[in-house]
Design a protein around this nucleic acid. Structure first.
Length: 601
RNA sequence: CGCGGGGUGGAGCAGCUCGGUAGCUCGCCAGGCUCAUAACCUGGAGGUCGUAGGUUCAAAUCCUUCCCCCGCUACCA
């Protein structure tokens, strides 16, 4: 049995379509990693889904005068389509409003409760005057008691940086209505983070290979750990699974408490759909299975603190002791891979002000791999990075089309025009130039593998692109178009092998084009796996259907493997058509005008 | 002293953990080639690596001072 890896990807919030900043943060990087890991022979399980509970969705549904379920159905569908169109190869992309998820979340809650890590307490809470609806801290504004700044928010003053409680504000008002909120006591359940602090700290300190900033940040915030309310006064969410609370329609579990449990519940749903309801245990209960989480940097706290705390408490490993529940000893995260942020022509993405490029819009106009390549090459892996249309066009035209696409195209043209097929040659007769290039390519396989496994995908990609340049230089140096047939066959054979193997390494980054390259090389017994959308029936509610992303990524061994491989046989090739298209630089101005018209820049 | 990240040729970045000729992509200049999507290849100009000091035979890299940018406990990823 090959080594198992769980790839757990942040759950997009279903309150609107996703923009390219979202997918640059968690989507494309996690898919590159998953595709590589499968090619390298790991047994991968990758899951995610839409996150569909919480106040913002409830409020927006009310504004749109529809039920929250109708709202999330709409955006779930759209997000599923976006991620599918990007070719993200989830084994299961589901959602948090399923019967399965609800049950798993409630089981986790009950075990935590039983072990003593969840307790009841009273807190003062702001409510909307008139409707009596709960008002989240950030929807309250007023004058800061420390510096007099207005408008300071209920949680923090932007001017002096003070941490605030809504009750501290002078003349607090609701951002929604402008009226003063009403403060009232409310009973809630709390996750006892202090009781888990020691176990959590110990665990964090054993995470030697994490990126230093993630580790530092996590250890830092742990110092002033407080119990955290995990229920809310809201009617949209998962029911509290306790007597006297089940029927309380206005108290539900806090959205973050349920969202992170999705990582587990989605694996359970995957196993149930596979027909072996216990299959997920191979990933979650096996200590040797690693679990890698992908997210934007704003989510670090939930993955390095809240979720591990829930898991530790579930297993009874905090200061209050306890026992593990029916799910057994669930693995804590091995890696928390966080991306930085993407900005848009120098501004932060903000859908409310239209500073945004939606995934569906960009994919409607430009090839999917142009976007994937851009994100892979210039995305926010280590620093915040700025998306500009100019650099998008330039990267596509110069690197993807000019270097790589042209290499494929010029080689195939020479082969087609002169021999109309890829001819076999005797490798032992190759010249030094030839073998040098081939062994160089072979040596890059393990180098890129190391880089991707240590989450340095950009460095990996630039190593591959260096090989593209080397091969272009090789053609210039050997001048196959001036050689006799014997030598020309040799050179072109070497070029074909170079292209085939470089294409293998590019496959995790730009899978759609990798498939096209395979076809134009006449390779039909290998494929690049792609996800599918399927409509399924809720396993716990036969009246309900929803779309999922899933797929067969092994393809009965037709999937391509991460290793230097020589193409054999004399495959005929068709008249080559360019695989990569240039993007007209005029679109830079057009797209920018679009933004100017919206008065954004 | 709240915490953290960053300041490297015109632009965007790598290098800094483990000090030793400053590297990549784009742009610019010159040349080459013509198989290819005016593509590709070669060479060149251009940097006192934010500032001031220290350690060292040697510092972008280690230590200290100061300056400037940017995030930060909110489901805006």
């Amino acid at each position: 049995m090959s080594k198992k890896v769980l790839i757990l990807v942040a759950w997009p919030y279903a309150n609107g379509p996703r923009h390219i900043g979202h997918v640059a943060g968690f989507g494309v990087p996690s898919d590159i990693y998953a595709r590589y890991m499968r090619m390298a022979g790991y047994n991968v399980l990758m899951v995610s889904g839409t996150d569909e509970h919480g106040t913002p969705i409830a409020m927006q549904a009310e504004k749109d005068d529809i039920s929250p379920q109708v709202l999330v159905d709409k955006y779930n569908k759209q997000i599923v389509e976006d991620l599918y169109n990007l070719g993200l190869s989830y084994d299961l992309f589901t959602r948090t409003t399923t019967g399965n998820h609800t049950k798993v979340v409630q089981n986790v809650f009950l075990q935590l409760y039983k072990n003593g890590y969840i307790y009841k307490d009273t807190m003062s809470q702001a409510k909307e005057a008139g409707t009596g609806k709960t008002l989240p801290d950030r929807y309250i504004e007023g004058t800061c008691p420390k510096c007099g700044y207005f408008p300071a928010r209920g949680d923090q003053c932007d001017n002096c940086g003070s941490q605030l409680d809504p009750t501290d504000l002078i003349n607090p008002v609701s951002k929604n209505t402008g009226k003063s909120p009403i403060f009232a006591d409310s009973v809630h359940f709390f996750l006892d983070l202090p009781a888990l602090k020691e176990a959590l700290t110990k665990w964090l300190k054993s995470r030697k290979n994490w990126r230093p900033n993630v580790l530092k940040y996590s250890l830092n915030i742990i110092n002033d750990t407080k119990p955290r309310a995990i229920t809310r006064d809201i009617d949209w969410g998962i029911t509290i699974p306790l007597p006297n609370w089940r029927d309380e329609s206005n108290k539900k579990l806090y959205v973050w408490f349920d969202a992170v449990v999705g990582y587990l519940s989605a694996c359970i749903e995957w196993a149930r759909r596979k027909g072996d309801a216990e299959l997920w245990r191979q990933y979650w209960n096996d200590k040797n299975c690693q679990s890698d989480y992908f997210m934007g940097k704003d989510n670090i706290a939930f993955h390095s603190q809240i979720w591990p705390s829930q898991l530790l408490g579930y297993r009874g490993l905090g200061s209050k002791g306890g026992q593990t529940g029916a799910y057994g000893d669930l693995n804590l995260p091995t890696e928390v891979v966080s991306s930085e942020f993407l900005t848009m022509e120098g501004k932060k993405f903000t859908s409310s002000q239209g500073i945004v490029i939606y995934v569906k819009d960009i994919l409607a106009k430009y090839p999917v791999d142009a976007l994937r390549y851009y994100i892979a090459a210039a995305g926010p892996e280590n620093n915040d990075t700025d998306f500009t249309w100019e650099s998008f066009v330039q990267r596509n035209n110069s690197e993807l089309v000019g270097s790589w696409g042209n290499l494929v195209n010029r080689t195939l043209n020479m082969v087609y025009k002169r021999f109309s097929q890829i001819s076999q040659i005797d490798m032992s007769q190759l010249e030094r130039n030839d073998t040098k290039l081939l062994s160089k390519i072979e040596s890059v396989f393990p180098e890129v593998a190391n880089l991707i496994e240590s989450h340095k995908q950009q460095a990996g990609l630039s190593k591959i692109m260096k090989l593209v340049n080397d091969t272009n230089a090789y053609i210039t140096a050997t001048e196959p178009f001036k050689q006799d047939d014997f030598r020309a066959r040799q050179i072109l054979w070497v070029c074909i092998q170079a292209i085939y193997n470089i294409n293998t390494m590019l496959a995790p980054y730009i899978p759609h084009s990798a498939q096209k390259v395979l076809l134009s090389l006449g390779v039909t017994n290998q494929k690049i796996p792609m996800p599918q959308i399927e409509t399924v029936i809720d396993l716990d509610n036969s009246n309900r259907q929803y779309p999922i992303i899933t797929g067969d990524y092994k393809l009965n061994d037709m999937a391509i493997k991460w290793q230097m491989t020589y193409l054999r046989g004399n495959s005929k090739i068709a008249k080559p058509e360019p695989i990569f298209q240039k993007i007209d630089p005029k679109i830079i101005e057009q797209e920018l005008n679009g933004l100017i018209n919206k008065k954004i820049i």
